[in-house]
Simulated assay, not measured.
Amino acid sequence: MTDRKTITLADVAALADVSQQTVSRVVTGNGQVAAHTRARVNAAIAHLNYVPNRLAIGLARQRTYSVGFATTDLSLHAPSQLTAGIEQAAREAGYSLLVSIVAANGLSATTHTLRGLRERQVDGVLLNVSLDTADVLEVQRRFPGLPCVFMDVPIGTPVPAALLDQAHGARLAAEHLLELGHTRVAILDGPRHAVVESARHHAWRDALATHDLTPVAHLEGDWSPASGYAATLRLLAGGVPFTAILVANDQMAVGVLRALWERGLNVPADVSVVGYDDTPESALLIPPLTTVRQDFPTLGARAFAHLLNLLGTEDPHSLQVLTVPELVIRASTAPPSVERQSVQAALETLRAALAAHGG
């Protein structure tokens, strides 16, 4: 059996007709290299099937060239899409990604996960776990030497963060319904512990308040379609008149649409539904779902770039990176029908009269 020659940095440099230092800059991602030269080096690397010795590079630079991503349930849309965006950005920068699932909410589970990533000698961590300001600061206190970018904390928390402007997205959704003429709007929230959900909820209420309105009902789900279905059945059983519902994510909105269909209600003629996230399936639902688009792969890439800056020369307490969602209007929303508004107003008057007489 013939031994194969081990391809070296010098072989790549010779084929690309550049110096070994230039090849090193391309491989490590450190230093400026002209785009056409980088392309030539990468072509030589691919042709020779050169595999850089990351361990040697890491030892020389006191880095492992790996980062951790601590996140919640990957079966949910947001964590899975964030993982895709982060992994691609990390790979392009020459880093490997270690994904670790946080088993439960709260500081204790987060600490356990971060300790495990720290034991794997990651250079830094991206943390997609819902934490309030106090818990965020405690995480920094417990892991003072671990560069960390937070992805689910209140805007304004004095830590490095890459966030979506949840309040802005929620306002867009509520204002859309208000512009259509809806005045009886129900809210279906996600879990109460979620920081992002708190921001959306308050923005929904604030938008309604500008029109002297309050939600006619407030329910809570767990992000799953089943919880959206169950919450909508409870809402309908309660007899509270409503012409629209704001839903905290598209997966719960799937359950909402199912429950309304089973009860013979037409969307949007009887009830308008607005989701949040813009999952790939949202445009294929019946009817296609009006929703707030969050570009999670881009957010993941921006979060990784922010962490990469922290691993370089940037101040570890640098300002937050904020990404703005956008409203996608589809067929699940329309102005409320005059007939349905009249019927619901009559029902509301009857309910108030019964309540006043103890009925």
Rank of each mutant, 00 (worst) to 15 (best):
G358M: 00
V195T: 13
R4A: 13
R351S: 13
A93T: 01
Y65T: 09
M151D: 10
T113F: 04
A174S: 04
G145A: 12
A244Q: 05
A44W: 06
R192T: 15
R234E: 14
T210V: 14
L285C: 00
L236S: 11
I57H: 11
A89Y: 03
P160V: 09
Y95P: 05
G255Y: 09
P154C: 07
V159M: 08
G156L: 10
L235C: 03
P154R: 09
T349V: 15
A93F: 02
A103L: 03
R4C: 05
K5L: 09
A16W: 11
D123G: 08
M151E: 12
R115I: 06
A209V: 02
P191V: 01
T133I: 08
V33E: 06
V41A: 08
H202V: 09
M252I: 03
Y95G: 12
P336F: 10
T291P: 01
D212H: 13
V324K: 14
G181L: 10
R141Q: 15
R234F: 02
R293T: 03
H218E: 13
A209Y: 00
A134G: 02
P191C: 01
T133P: 04
V136L: 05
T214F: 04
V343F: 10
V159W: 03
A199V: 02
G300C: 08
A13G: 12
M252W: 03
H357W: 05
A331G: 02
V196Q: 13
D278P: 01
T232N: 01
E220W: 11
H218P: 02
T298V: 15
T37D: 02
G145M: 05
R40D: 02
S224I: 03
V136S: 11
L9I: 13
I86M: 01
N128L: 12
R302Q: 15
Y95H: 14
G156E: 06
P225N: 00
P144Y: 07
A16H: 09
Y50R: 03
A35T: 11
A10L: 13
V51T: 14
A303G: 06
P280R: 00
H47C: 08
V273C: 06
S75G: 14
A301G: 14
V51Q: 14
T279I: 01
L146S: 06
E92W: 04
